[in-house]
Design a protein around this nucleic acid. Sequence first.
DNA 1: AATGCGGGGAT
DNA 2: ATCCCAGCATT
Length: 395
Amino acid sequence: MKTSKVESLFPDVTALWGEDKITAFQMEFLEWYERTRRDLPWRENSDPYRVWVSEIMLQQTQVVTVIPYFYRFMEWFPTIADLAEAEEEKLLKAWEGLGYYSRVRNMQKAAQQLVADYDGKMPNTIEEISELKGIGPYTAGAISSIAFGLPEPAIDGNVMRVFSRLFELDADIAKPSSRKVFDHVVRQVMPHQDPSSFNQAIMDLGATVCMPKTPTCESCPLSAYCQSYEKGTMLNFPVKSKKVKSKPVYYVAHVIKNNSGEYVLEQRPETGLLANLWTFPLVEVTKEAYDKLNVEATKESRQLELIAEDSPSYISVLKEQETCPTVWQTKPVGEVTHIFSHLKWHISIGYGQVERADYSLTDRQKWVPADQFSEYPFPKPQQKMVELLSGTGYL
DNA sequence: AATGCGGGGAT
DNA sequence: ATCCCAGCATT
């Protein structure tokens, strides 16, 4: 029997396995899940709000990271209405360190949609759920199946890895168009009596057994059904193109302290990277300027030296941005790096002192004493700077 | 279809 | 270092 190209891209599982084998597959898999499922805080019940919060947090984020955030979030915002009314500052504080901050902003917009149009409750059709801000095809499927028992697939990285191995599917999972291949296959084997357990079983399997680099096929409940296990080709799947190197960006951070012991903090722009979070003022410099700073920093000691005139290049860089008489320390306090998915920040920390009355703040800057830093949502690079400054006695 | 958007765990 | 993770919005 010959297979056309379309059939190999979109396998007909019913023809391949037959009804009986599909049923056996479902039974064995659900039984495995019942026996070994992870005990997770959002699995206590199927409250749509809890399912929703957990799914948003789990986007591109591992379970172990999410757990403490989930508990705190449910404490701070127990209901959808609480979330809808929350202050943005508190919202960002709840998300601090979790990354992809637009997730929580979108979730609040969705909560407001729900209060306005659905009496503060999650609707129970995938069409309506999909309309909500921040809910894409994966999350819509996850909420539909887990909270409402609807037979909808939830196609994520786990599903694509598991199913690419089960059927040796070589669709490039980096391409958005490949999603429909997996959707087609998953629908054919999803048990309509318990799509919730089925979807969560795939998540558990992907996280604990069918792992990217080190799958433990000996303990896999699906090994008897796995085409790639049979052929020993597990590590060839999934097929994934892509991979762009993160590009370097260089900054000097201005740690400016006034005579009242306060520091300048600056709120980042309302859109883009780390939107609305707070950092010391950051000034981008060229790689050449940056390299010079660090040479000088490492050559000499890091004693506090107050200077004024005839400054080395480090001071020149700082002076370009100077808005009032500032006593800069001659050398950087230290260096912090942070890797994002698409770029790498290098930050050299400059320290200077001013008279409070001399220094005029921009509209997104504030004077803040160090003991109030914890009230502001800080991105990771800022946390690293604070840690370094504390450790060296500057805060 | 490509790109921007965080941060951490595992190897 | 590199890859991956319970992805989505925007262009």
